[in-house]
Simulated scan of single mutants.
Amino acid sequence: MAEKLIELNSVETALEIFGSRDENIRLLENEFSITAVCRGSQIKFTGEPEQVAAAARAVDAMLTLLENHTPLEEQTVRYCISLAGAGEERRVRELTQDFVAVTAKGRPVRPKTLGQREYLQAIKQNAITFGVGPAGTGKTYL
C-alpha cells in the first residue's frame, strides 16, 4: 500500500478539484481503486502504488486546466482520468493553448479532447475539411 499527500494552493482550488459533493474525488476513487481522504486543502490517496501515482497525475492534469481558466466539468474530469491512466496527462496542456472564438458571455471555445484539437488543426491547415464521426463529439461546436 502506498500513500500520496497532495497539498493544494487554496481552499477554493480544493473545492474545484473535489467537485460538487466530492463527485470528482469519487470518480478518482472508483477509476483507480484507491481511497481518498480530503481535509481542508489536502488530498491523501491510499492504495496500490501505480494507482495512487495515476490518481495524483489526474489531479495534476485538473490543476493544469484550472490554471488556464478551464472549468472542471464531469466530462473534463473523466478525460483527465483517462489520460492519467494512459500516462498522457501532460498532453492536457495542449487543450488550453488555443481557442477558436469567444462566446457572447466571454468564454473561449476550446477543444475539449485531443481528437478535437487535431480536427481544429486540420481545419486551419486545409481549405476544405470534412468532419465525420459519431454524434456528440463536438464537430458542430468547433
Rank of each mutant, 00 (worst) to 15 (best):
T70E: 14
A53L: 13
R107T: 12
P49R: 12
K4M: 02
E7A: 04
D22C: 02
K4E: 13
G138L: 06
Y141A: 13
E73L: 08
G106R: 01
D60L: 08
Y141Q: 05
A58K: 03
G133E: 07
E12N: 11
C80P: 12
A84T: 04
E29N: 02
P134N: 12
P111F: 01
L63I: 12
T137S: 11
Y79P: 10
E31H: 14
M1I: 05
A53I: 04
L120C: 14
L72D: 08
A55C: 03
L8K: 01
R117H: 09
E16T: 02
Q97T: 10
T35G: 14
A86L: 05
R26M: 10
T46N: 11
H69W: 06
T137I: 14
K124Q: 14
A86V: 00
F99C: 05
T46P: 10
E31D: 12
Q75V: 08
A54Q: 14
Q116L: 03
L8F: 08
L65Q: 09
T64C: 12
G115W: 10
Q121H: 13
G106I: 01
T103L: 03
I34D: 09
G138D: 11
A61K: 03
E7Q: 11
A14W: 07
A53F: 04
I128V: 15
A55S: 11
R90F: 04
G19M: 03
I34N: 05
V100C: 02
S10K: 05
V77I: 07
T46E: 15
E88T: 03
S10W: 04
E29I: 00
E7G: 01
N9M: 07
N9E: 15
A55Y: 01
K105L: 11
G19C: 03
V132H: 12
Q116R: 03
F99Q: 05
F32G: 08
Q97C: 03
T137P: 08
E73I: 05
S41V: 01
E23D: 12
V100T: 02
R26F: 14
R26I: 06
Q42N: 15
T96Q: 08
L15N: 14
R93L: 09
K112C: 03
G106E: 07
L28S: 05
V11Q: 10
Y119K: 01
A101K: 11
A36C: 14
G136F: 09
S82M: 04
Y119W: 07
V52L: 07
Q97V: 06
I34S: 04
A56E: 15
G133D: 11
P134G: 15
K4G: 00
E23S: 13
T46I: 11
S41I: 01
Q51W: 00
T64R: 09
R107S: 13
N30K: 14
Q116G: 04
H69Q: 13
E67Q: 11
D60A: 13
L66E: 09
E3N: 05
E73P: 02
V92K: 01
R21H: 14
Y119A: 15
K124C: 12
